[in-house]
Design a protein around this nucleic acid. Structure first.
Lengths: 227, 227
DNA sequence: ACAAAAGTGTTGTCTGTACACCCATGC
DNA sequence: GCATGGGTGTACAGACAACACTTTTGT
């Protein structure tokens, strides 16, 4: 007996909000859509879910197709299922967001996909409900970062305290006090001073820090209270 | 041009975690499944998404079919998309959780659907990945209740401070201090003393409280910090 | 010597937490 | 009059927020 007979089937898509940080602004990776409808308009990277892959695997594939990256921090955001969200036909989309290091992203791939990093402060209109997805992802990122150390996923391996603070300010969209921020981060015991200095942005130079992997994983599991 | 040709289609289901509170324990509403596979095993209430309804609407329909209730607090939890999560064939499921007042639930409907309220402390094995869904929903409820006043959705219109505290203790799964709890709730300025007393559980009797709708909506929007 | 960014401490306020006794009433 | 659950205040500790000056060094 097949109790699932006569059940309607649906088109199921993935859309991917890809966050990056250039040392100043929080950015998203967007593509100029290559297919109808809405060809040539700005869009999130997306794709359809295949028959033989899990939903998570589909999201990883979509991300890989655009970035060539694997082992990236990625999280399911929400399933968007309004009837008319895609103007062409009924498509239900599951949105994921990913955090990547902009530096790890290869420029040649950008052109190949008509892709660009765009500051989230000057976001153009996106197709369908993609603007809503980005808003939701920003909000979720804020929430998450307040309780998990995932912000670090956006930084290069070595980074200065100032870069770290700027990142948090970009995510929260509020300025933070330099001294209080430094104290807070040190109290988490999650970064280590390499003793080496970055000398391009100031005369004095600022120390490069790296993550303590073990402590990081611990905090990712247990949670923390950042703000 | 139809750019969505040759794209695979999927079976898409809704599963619904329905929370209730009986004054003592946090409970879930579960059904004995009527169809194969896994007929007669405990399951979440579910159903397939139709062609002509949004995903949210499908969730509301599934909840209505089991409870007869509308205008219920309901929130999308997560999309579960592992290849083999349904042992019969590939089904992707979008889980929602709902908060209802047990008292508003009609007993005749329970029998009709082979449904029972089961304490989440003594949860039986559920089919497929439904146990995981319940765990995830409990976790999400904890998170949400810490920042939004939605716990009230589970209580009857009139309730005592003790009932409210017991509810929060059941959700957080930790005991709370009576005096600190009372102070905290009052500081939110969200409940009003009706002046009437409940007299069945103690000689002295305890005051019935009701919500202040306006303040409640404000807090639901703005968020709060409860724990 | 000066410009430009880095780094560093203290204090007051608020929030959270621990804790114990009296009250009102039905029996 | 006593047993039962209801209601209330205080004190200590830790977290957070506000705030300004000195250091380093390339030019």
């Amino acid at each position: 007996m097949n109790s699932y007979q006569h059940v309607p089937r649906h088109l199921l898509a993935i859309d991917c909000i890809i966050f990056g940080f250039d040392g100043e602004d929080l950015k998203g990776l967007f593509v100029k859509r290559k297919i109808e409808p809405q060809k040539d308009n700005w869009s999130l990277m997306g794709g359809f879910i295949a028959e033989t892959e899990s939903v998570d695997a589909a999201a990883e594939r979509v991300l890989f197709e655009l970035t060539g990256l694997t082992d990236v921090y990625m999280e399911q955001l929400h399933c968007y299922g309004e009837l008319d969200r895609d103007t062409h036909s009924r498509v239900i989309s599951i949105a994921y967001f990913a955090l990547i290091q902009i530096a790890s992203y290869k420029d040649e791939v950008l052109k190949e996909h008509n892709a660009s990093w765009i500051s989230l402060k000057e976001l153009p209109e996106l197709i369908f409900d993609h603007s809503q997805m980005v808003e939701d992802a920003k909000e979720r990122l804020k929430q998450k970062v307040a309780n998990h150390p995932i912000g670090f996923e956006l930084l290069p391996d070595k980074f200065t305290l100032r870069q770290l603070q700027t990142l948090y300010e970009a995510i929260y969209e509020i300025p933070l006090d330099k001294r209080n921020f430094t104290r807070k981060i040190f109290s988490l015991d999650i970064i280590r001073n390499t003793g080496k200095k970055e000398k391009t942005t100031s005369r004095k130079g600022s120390f490069y820090f790296v993550f303590e992997e073990e402590k990081y994983k611990q905090l990712e599991k247990d949670g923390l209270k950042f703000i």
